[in-house]
Design a protein around this nucleic acid. Structure first.
Lengths: 319, 319
DNA sequence: TTGAAAGCGCTAACAA
DNA sequence: TTGTTAGCGCTTTCAA
């Protein structure tokens, strides 16, 4: 009836009636029931956001990007966390899709066939984010982690380092870290080189973890001249360790991380790193959903490949 | 009809029919429509989570706690971000309540009368988190920031420091930071002391910011013997700055922060700090919602006051 | 154990 | 410009 029209400011309603309705609504403390509205209109202003973890600094930043864009729209993010487990992803996705959201933003490209089928059949915009090395269901926004690994390897080689060690997490399901390492070793291969040593860890990253790993790898292989960390936080810990040991950085030993964590600016030296464009990824993904939710032409299949920028900092510039 | 019974495994259904329905559902790739279900049953498995920011490390940790508890239930968090703006909070709350969620978890106790009214009238469990110094609408889980400020002041005084400077953000709407400062100065007052200097900043915190502020306050008031930071990240930056300047910590100058950021473990010295129990707060809040969502007895009004623990670290132990 | 029927509170289409 | 009506896809109640 008219009330509905007023509250959605749609259609033609006289100013007088409008006022009367608004007054009554306020007076009664009326809050519309979106469930009924959504059922009737089959429009839901929710966007499903599915990510592997909240412990890793990276994902809050992506969400930040998403939510900053969605704030200017009618849309609202709903969060699902998978803990890097494909079965959990399936479950979360099923739950979320049963709300018939306006779109799905989901991290990564690797998932079970069941999850992929759900996404395909959902009939709503799907944006897979963070990674572009693989087959997307619909749209995709991210960086190429393989390329990021290759770029870093090239920069290291170009600086004249030869005995390179890798320090990363052993999570087999973190496909992006795996791809970076692949790209990295590919580039070493191409230059006729290979990794001199590797060190893996479990659990969360941090300065402490970086210190331990660095100590371990340097004791095992003292002649390394470069350490490539899968993660800035660990890299920074390693850097602090080496500085204390009086190791000459970047002359004797160079180092680099990944992710360009802003809060690290202000450490004694700036760690070489590569920006993973997290905020931009979130923003671009949200923008795709927002646009497609407005106009209901079924475009789809957008591809946004962002270019990570390399920061040499103070720890990668030997020659 | 029967299908509905099978899919919710309710009521008595023969095994044979059950099988038949399940098979058909799988075959058709059927995903139930929760909107219709929610409308019919007036039960919604969503929990509204309203926080001021995602940039501050603290909130992802709270969400982590919430989501870890909700994972074992039917419930799912929906996120709303207010950017510390009361009007934005009102808007977000209105949006969320119109989905008739199973509960609301919302940061802080200070809010507009309109927001408070919405929460009161919503008829669902409301848990206000992080802070306990004030009047709650329903349940509350958090720490006393006033008390935290007092405790820290006492520890500093007991260690023999006398010329104390405070370094904090100038956000007038961060009530918790304000309360900590109040508690802090109250305790100084009680000891016949007062702050020797203060330095405020805007924007995000980080090592760089901590360095700048520390330099500024020490140049203005060189005889300070203690720096109290509203935030560990800034404190750590200040510590790095002082270490480089060759200042003797904690002899010549003591320092302390707030929040106990884990990833900082591994810095050259451990900053004195106080745990804000973020994860526990998230968990406890989610547990309250989960319990009340199950049993629909309207208990309510729970109060969970957690005790922050003081870590002296290496920067607060003069005598 | 199963089926039938009446809503849940809105929106959308149409009529007045 | 306003009122009326028929669903949206489930759950719930009641009858078979």
């Amino acid at each position: 009836m008219t009330v509905s029209r007023v509250l959605r400011n749609r259609g033609d309603v006289s100013a007088a009636t409008r006022e009367r309705v608004l007054a009554a609504a306020k007076h009664l403390g009326y809050v519309p029931n979106k469930i009924a509205g959504a059922l009737a209109s089959s429009r839901v202003n929710l966007v499903a956001v599915v990510i592997p973890s909240l412990s890793n600094l990276v994902f809050p930043e992506v969400i930040n990007g998403i939510s900053s864009v969605l704030e200017d729209t009618e849309l609202q993010p709903v969060l699902g966390v998978t803990h890097y487990r494909p079965e959990q992803e399936e479950k979360v996705l099923y739950e979320m899709l049963s709300w018939r959201p306006s779109g799905v933003i989901i991290a990564g490209l690797e998932r079970s066939e069941a999850s992929r089928a759900m996404l395909r059949n959902s009939g709503i915009p799907v944006v897979e984010i963070m990674d572009v090395d693989g087959e997307a269901v619909d749209s995709v926004v991210g960086i190429s982690h393989k390329r990021a690994g290759r770029m870093m390897a090239q920069a290291i080689i170009d600086s004249g380092y030869r005995r390179i060690g890798f320090l990363g997490s052993k999570m087999p399901l973190d496909h992006r870290a795996r791809k970076r390492l692949e790209g990295f070793t590919d580039a070493l291969d191409a230059a006729g080189m290979s990794l001199a040593d590797q060190e893996f860890y479990e659990g969360g990253s941090g300065f402490g973890k970086g210190r331990e790993m660095t100590q371990a790898i340097l004791e095992r292989t003292p002649d390394l001249d470069f350490l490539y960390y899968s993660n800035d936080l660990n890299g920074a810990g390693g850097m602090l360790y080496c500085l204390e040991k009086g190791i000459d950085i970047p002359g004797e030993l160079g180092m680099a991380g990944f992710n360009r964590i802003d809060l690290l600016d202000g450490l004694p030296m700036q760690l070489a790193t590569m920006d993973s464009c997290r905020r931009e990824i979130g923003e671009a993904a949200a923008r795709i959903i927002a646009e497609r939710a407005g106009a209901d032409n079924a475009t789809g299949g957008e591809q946004v490949v962002l270019m990570p920028t390399l920061t040499l900092g103070d720890t990668l510039q030997r020659n």
